[in-house]
Amino acid sequence: MTKKFTKDHEWVLVEGDIATVGVSDFAQSQLGDVVFVELPEAGRELEQGKEAAVVESVKAASDVYAPVSGTVIEANQALVDDPSMVNSAAETDGWFFKIQLKDASELDALMDEAAYKAFVEESH
């Protein structure tokens, strides 16, 4: 089980060939109160680095990019019903969607937790 981060503040947790994706705790703290999420439907093909979901606070709308390529197998319906979970549990229950990995080697370019932490501190 590995957890990796992107420079665009998504996290991805890989178990076998299933990747769970969300936005980082740092990202949620910057967004403010999240009021709406729009998640990809199951079956949609996602490409690494391309738009996959939308997260909205009152005054900002942000795109969430796919950290890795693959096919969406599940979107987090609980998050749609209660978007505040992005704020309260960004890296646990507030996950966005799960995808079937297409190419595990794409993970290599992503940061591990320590590297991401350093990245955030350095750039913000």
Binding site: F36, E56, S57, V58, K59, A60, A61, D63
Partner: peptide
């Protein structure tokens, strides 16, 4: 005013 994330001043080209 609400749901303003649909609007141009936030979403710009989207």
């Amino acid at each position: 005013l609400t749901l303003s994330t649909r609007e141009q001043h936030i979403r710009r080209e989207k």
